[in-house]
Design a protein around this nucleic acid. Structure first.
Lengths: 217, 217
DNA sequence: CTGGAATGATACCGAATCGTATTGACTGAA
DNA sequence: TTCAGTCAATACGATTCGGTATCATTCCAG
């Protein structure tokens, strides 16, 4: 297995996050760096729509432009590309909730804001497809699911925990309470949406309010 | 691969639930009916282990015995077989929780019993694989996920609802409370197990107790 | 301008897939 | 015993895919 990019070092030294199969960095020209992004973007759309096994490398390349050379040089193969796609999407979906500033907001109101922001994000068809993709692949890539879980649900739960701090009877269980509130408002609406029977938004809002009352009692 | 117990028996015409692609019943001999079961059993194991796309019809037949003829005559193809497998497994996983008899048990204790029984069931590797399979395929088969959800989570929630009846401050929200209690105790442990980082059993028990106190407050 | 590396386009390979067709053995009833 | 229908085993065709190899083209530093 020869790798020309490594046998005879670079040209335009430009470092991206790309690594080959063995984890060694791959040098990319400006064109290559652009292809790197284009490949991830194209692969993301296709993987979201059809899942890992439903997409062919040729299909991705046809959409991204360039050639298969890039996929195998920059990502080591289909699997490497999939991994980078999942990690990139994990980062993207996190932002709106993490960006909330809840300083000085009443706990009940803060939980409502978090809940609505979170659910608007999670119920987006793109995110539903993403979750389907990650869960479906969790057998083959448990570490990828762990990465997503840390960047997504756990981050949201941490924010909920900060809101609950000092407002619970049993302060020692703040962490558990945060997880439980999160799962209480997220699980059922997401599952229903995932099987094509979404709840109406007012119903979801009522659930959030009900859950907030429950957890703060 | 021959199976002496199946190769020889008589050939009385016999009706099973099998239908062909157009929904018309297929006549099966005794041998055929045995193969029907064997195919579902073999396909179930393989689909659970490798997912829909990771399994080939030839692989299933190699494990079940017989030949591909049966798959296409009895199930119409790989997809039809997959559908029957999911429905059969949905029925199987339901039983232990539905079989509980909680007449005259205190609500708090009853919730504990349901929670422990439910989680012991859901955290079984076979069920984790099943859930992975159904969620991963929910894009292509949303109706299958709906079937599972009705036979699984919704049935459990209904049982929780019957326990809560008459013990909540806001009686009108008994249904919501049941769903929330269910998701509170189920979601996080299952997700953690699914990504290969299972919670210790005592932690889970504590969660159940905590959730029961919360929901009954 | 130029030489060597990175990239593009594509042919190619081997393996694997689904679904059908074929053939011969076996079954159960006439 | 005979005969029509079913099943097992396997061959087959058509297709697809992942990954490699090839060669022309483009890019960039010097």
């Amino acid at each position: 297995m020869t790798d020309p990019a490594i046998d005879a070092p670079p040209e335009t030294a430009q470092e991206t996050g790309a690594t080959d199969t063995a984890g060694r960095p791959v040098q990319l020209s400006t064109r290559g760096a652009a292809r790197h992004e284009a490949l991830i973007a194209a692969a993301a759309e296709l993987f979201l729509a059809q899942g890992l096994d439903g997409v062919s490398v040729d299909g991705i390349v046809a959409r991204a432009g360039g050639s298969k050379t890039n996929v195998y040089r920059q990502f080591g193969g289909k699997e490497g590309l999939f991994r980078e796609v999942v990690q990139a999407l994990s980062r993207d979906f996190l932002s709106p909730v993490a960006a909330l500033d809840l300083a000085g907001v009443e706990p009940a109101a803060a939980l409502g804001i978090i809940g609505r922001t979170l659910l608007r994000q999670l119920l987006d068809p793109r995110h539903l497809a993403f979750q389907r993709m990650v869960l479906g692949a969790s057998g083959r890539f448990p570490d990828l699911m762990a990465d997503w879980y840390a960047a997504g649900p756990r981050a949201s739960q941490a924010m909920i925990g900060r809101v609950l701090e000092g407002h619970l009877a049993d302060a020692a269980r703040t962490g558990d309470a945060a997880v439980m509130f999160h799962d209480m408002i997220v699980t059922d609406p997401v599952n229903r949406a995932m099987m094509g029977q979404p709840l109406a938004w007012p119903v979801i809002e009522a659930r959030i309010a009900c859950a907030a009352r429950t957890i703060l009692a």
